[in-house]
Every structure is written in structure tokens, then in C-alpha cells.
Design a binder for these strands. Sequence first.
DNA 1: GACGACTTGTCAGTCGCTGTCATGTTTGAC
DNA 2: GTCAAACATGACAGCGACTGACAAGTCGTC
Lengths: 218, 218
Amino acid sequence: MTATDKSSVPVNFDRRYSDAVTTEKPGLRERTRQAVRTQLMAVAWGLFVEQGYDATTVDEIAAAVGMSQRSFFRYFSSKEDVVLVKFEAVGAMLADVLANRPAEEDAWTALRRAFDVIVGPTERDPRHGLVLLRITSQAPALRARVLEEQTNWQELLAPLVARRMQQPAGGDLGPTALTAAALACLVVANAAWLRVDGTEPLAGFLDDAMRTVRPGAF
Amino acid sequence: MTATDKSSVPVNFDRRYSDAVTTEKPGLRERTRQAVRTQLMAVAWGLFVEQGYDATTVDEIAAAVGMSQRSFFRYFSSKEDVVLVKFEAVGAMLADVLANRPAEEDAWTALRRAFDVIVGPTERDPRHGLVLLRITSQAPALRARVLEEQTNWQELLAPLVARRMQQPAGGDLGPTALTAAALACLVVANAAWLRVDGTEPLAGFLDDAMRTVRPGAF
DNA sequence: GACGACTTGTCAGTCGCTGTCATGTTTGAC
DNA sequence: GTCAAACATGACAGCGACTGACAAGTCGTC
């Protein structure tokens, strides 16, 4: 996925924030840490689905994996974070796909194709995506945070979009705006898809939305 | 920004029908309540500007107006609410202006013109808008909530946008998407404007953003 | 085997927020 | 004018998210 590092960082030196993708040689400690994190997420997710996000306390989650509440917060910076990490990964994937789209493809089409990273899985099995959307839409604070996370995607994608647009003037506002518009379409499409409980393909909604905003594109 | 409410209605309009209809008018109690609310907002705002949103506790705000913390929460449902009410008013104003734009104006242009409700005041005096943006961007949870509030605007505006678009098919997804895209442009423009500290006109940023998303419009 | 890096639990405390109860104070009916 | 219902407030207790500090382990390395 990311071509960042495999050995550039000293083995055990302040790894607290580094957990983007599962690397292969992070050392035993880091791997157990990842394992705990994963387990924590799984358990938390189960509880969220079962009884709702708000109704689930951090104490419960911690107890369910047999650790103290304090330790939970050593793995996740907040309760919201447990959900948000799922979205952070998506941002990186979007950027990756977008960067590898054919150079001659126009920005809007490339964005649409990048979104296939999200659309694809929902067609193979919509359940996971639906659960994710349902949980995030039930708690207002969480919903808000997800929205904010998507503006982070914006910053990731905008530079890649800029490369596909020929307008050196005007700063990077144009590319950012176009990216933001595309992401807005994604959000709208997701909402529509959730509203019909995934019974109609997400791709259709997304196409509708993006074609309406830019008629004539793809 | 300042919500000069329905002051167009004569002061003692309901006086003569007061016993015939259930009073929708302020009434003394409701007016003192509004007064307290306003004072609370003013004081809170001062503290936010002075020492930051996160660094200001609800206890402080309450003490500054001489009431208990408990009573603060009888006027605002949350600390965030003190800031958010400023945005709720804007949504209504946008809808109002949009509804009154000439019917033959296309949707995108009408949206741009509606945004003048926001842009206008920033040209007369950018300070208020800048402070608002600065406060809301410094606290992540708050920023997220503002973003969410803007999706509420979306629901307000989308039906009005729909009327300006000729495509009965496809449900209301198209209008919603277009509205969301326009709002995304607004957000992006605001961010750019904040980044230059208001030294360049917001209108320019907004025009750039919206023209990039829909070339050829207005 | 000892040292240092790392992890954990416990405890105490802050802050946002809520329910409840016991006081006034206001309002509206009689 | 009186009185009861309606409302506003403060005080108190409590929950849940989150944090800092400390002490007690665990584990890899030299």
C-alpha cells in the first residue's frame, strides 16, 4: 500500500502514533500492541452494534477484553477513535488509488473511479458498510467527527486532483473545491444508500450525484 | 451574522386577539429568557475569544453572569450550542434568500447569490466572521459540529434547489448533491479566507471555488 | 542477572452533562 | 386579593469521558 518506510525508523523509538498499515517487522512489542488494538476494536464494535454507540461505555469495552478503562485510553485516544480509525484507513486507500489512475483521466472521473474503493466492497457484501453507516449516523457527535475526517481525505486527495487540472493560477483552491464537491457527493450518496437500506446499489446513487454536479462528466 | 429576528411585526400586534388565539408571541417570561440567553452568549463569546473555547469551562461562563452551572444548561443544551446557535440562524437566512431569488435563475447561480448573505457582512466588517471562524476551527469537536450543522442547511436548501432543476427523475438526490457541493465550496472558501486572515475578499474565493466545480456557471 | 524500555492497574481529579429536590417568584384564575 | 399551578433557580449527587501521577510488574538486551 503505502511506500513509506520499511526500515527507516529505528526499531523501538516513539512508535506511539505510527500505525497506518500492518507492517511485517515491527518487533514483537509493536505486534502485540496491534493485536490488542484489533481485539479492542472487534469487541467494541460488537458492543456498539448490539446496544448502540452511546449506550456502550468505555468501561464496558475495557472490561470485555479484561483491562482497565485507563488502558483502553492507552490504545485509543477516545471512544470515537475506535470508530474513526476505520475511516482513516479509507482516506489512505483513496489517495493510493487516485494516484494510480491513468494520467489522462480528468479529475472528476478519476475521483469517481477512486471512490470505487468504497463502492466495490458494498457490492460484494453491503452488510459491513451498512453497519458502519448505521452506527455513525446514530450518534450525532460521532457523525460530526466522521464528517470532519472526510475533510482530512480532502487534504490528502486535493494535491492529486491538482495534478489533473490545468490552471496554475488561483492557488490550490480549485482542486480543493473540486475534491470537496466530490466528497460531498459521496456523503450524499452514502446517505441515500443507507436510507434504502442498501437495497439499491451505492454506485447508482454516486453516479447520479456526481453527474448532477458536473453534467457531461464520465 | 446577527440575527435581527422578526422585528418587522408590530409591537403590540397580538394585543387585541390575545384571548382568541393561543399566544405565539414572546410574552414577558419568554422575553426575559431570551435576554438571559443573549447575555449568556455575549459573556461566553468574550471568554472564548479571550482564552479559547476548550480552556473556558461552563462553570466560568455561568459564574461570569452570576448563575449556577446547572442553570447554564437550562439555557443551552450544551457548551457547543452556544456557538452553534450562531450558525442555525444563517441556515434560515440562506433558505429565505434562496427562495426569493428570481425563478429563472439557474440553481448554481442562485446558490452563489444566496451565499451573499454570508459574504456581504464579511465585506462590511470581516472581524466578526473571522472571530467566528477562528473559534470554530480551534476546537476539533466544535469544528466537526459546525460541519454537521451545515448538512442541516443542506436539507433546508435542497428542496428550493430542486425547484430550479428540471429533472423529476432520480429522486431528490440530484438537488441534494448540488446543494452539498455548493456548501462544500463555501466551506473551502471560508477556510481559504481564514488562512489569509481576511485580507482578500471572501467573495473571490467563493467565486473561484464555485466556478471550478461548475465551469461556465455565472 | 541487571538495567532500561515498556505496559498495566489504581487512584484521584477535571469537565461536560443530567436527575432530583427544595426553594422562591410569577402568572393566571377565582 | 388570594391561592394554586407554572416556572426559575440553586444545591447536591451522580455518570461517563478523559487525564496525570505513581507504583508494580514484564520483557528484551547487554
